[in-house]
Design a binder for these strands. Structure first.
Length: 262
DNA sequence: ATGGTAGACCTTCTA
């Protein structure tokens, strides 16, 4: 099973680019972030025509996440528990049905810049809520994949120029510590497990020629529960998607699970 | 050097 995660930076502005990638990569499951549209504006028919079932948690202008799956999506949850006053559409969870069901999450963790503002506080609070909910999910002892744009640079090796991110919310000690706490619950960072080579970037800013200069960072992650990590066979970062026409500033990350094998 | 670009959308916010 190929599970993809991709921050598409507006699914409607990027639809032809996204569909071209789907036709080529053929993921079984896909987690999209920053769709930047309400549910009714999500181009569900375009994905359904490619054979996907669709679940959307949308929002006008900002944020918005979606799940796509070749098999039906069950037990859909929209919104991260823990704060009824949080109206950002940044979390959707569902069970991908099949002989070996997998619980899949598409998450768009807050950016948190600038540091020292309420935005950074919101980011850290959101990470705390994610940790609490992830702990509850782990107790289910199911195959689980927490996929998305975490807006976290875990280690210096995950940035081309770590010094330039020193003051950024994505690389603060508190941010990195919160991400470690999440992993230490018992999750495996899929990329680090099968590859771990420095330079596996997933984001290059549109500005200042970041792509041309390879000023990238690894901030899109797939975290797997033990019951999923046991079946992990490969992770591919689709770097060449950054060179497509009208690219997103993020590229897809695809994790492969061989769930039929012991 | 505090730059640069992209998307949604209405003038500026977010990233």
């Amino acid at each position: 099973m190929k599970i993809a995660t991709w921050n598409v930076n507006s699914v409607n502005a990027r639809l032809e680019t996204v569909l071209a990638w789907f036709r080529n990569a053929q993921p079984d499951v896909a987690c999209l972030q920053e769709i930047k549209c309400v549910d009714e504006r999500f181009p569900a028919e375009a994905f359904e025509s490619l054979g996907y079932n669709v679940a959307v948690h949308g929002q006008k202008t900002y944020n918005g996440v979606a799940l796509l799956s070749k098999t039906p999506l069950e037990d859909v949850r929209k919104g991260l528990p823990g704060d009824d006053g949080d109206d950002h559409a940044r979390y959707i969870e569902a069970v991908v049905s099949g002989p070996r069901p997998v619980r899949v999450v598409s998450l768009y963790l807050p950016n948190g810049n600038p540091v020292g503002t309420e935005k950074f506080g919101y980011k850290l609070a959101w990470m705390g809520r994610l940790e609490a909910h992830a702990a509850e999910l782990l107790a289910l002892e199911e195959p689980i994949a927490l996929c998305g744009d975490y807006n976290v640079i875990p280690e210096p090796a995950d940035a081309d120029n770590p010094e330039s991110w020193a003051g950024d919310a994505l690389f603060q000690p508190q941010t990195r510590a919160a991400f470690r706490r999440l992993k230490w619950l018992g999750f495996t960072d899929a990329y680090m497990e099968v590859d771990g080579t420095p330079g596996g970037y997933t984001f290059w800013d549109y500005q200042a020629g970041a792509w041309q200069r390879n000023h990238g960072i690894r901030i899109d992650h797939v975290l797997l529960s033990p019951q999923a990590a046991d079946h992990l066979t490969n992770v591919v970062i689709h770097r060449n998607a950054r060179a497509m026409d009208k690219p997103s500033d993020h590229v897809p990350v695809v994790a492969e699970l061989a769930l039929d094998e012991a």
